[in-house]
Amino acid sequence: MPSYTFPARFEFLDEIRETVAQVARAGGFSEKAIYSIQLAADEASSNIIEHAYEGESDSPLDLTCEMQGDDIVIILRDWGKSFNPAGVKDPNLSADLSTRQVGGLGMYLMRKLMDTVRYESNARTGNLLIMTKRRE
């Protein structure tokens, strides 16, 4: 599986989005789906930098991305703080302007944009975020 390691810095988000877009484009996804996949990979990576690593650093962010049949499979790995994804509540999208919360929006978008989002964490493998989306 093709794998890349980026320093956990926001300036590498461009490259991360470009990497998943290339795989998705070669895999025959529509432009609309490619945008969704890029956004999901960006939100996941941004969350890792912000929350797992608690800010930008040179810690490793591993990206693995490939087509498996009709599915694109994106795996992001970090060695920072783990979290409980079930504890991330969906934001209340009908709240008015003054009470609207923006926390959890990235996770919410990932779940909406991809078909599956799975999270695993253990000391041996680090934190793994595995997302898939099927070509239409």
Binding site: L13, R17, Y35, Q38, L39, D42, E43, S46, L97, S98, R100, V102, L105, G106, L109
Partner: peptide, 19 residues
Amino acid sequence: EYMSSAGFRALLATQRNCK
């Protein structure tokens, strides 16, 4: 060309302040 939730957050904060 592209905007992630980081941009959405900036829009929301500004809308709150402006209104």
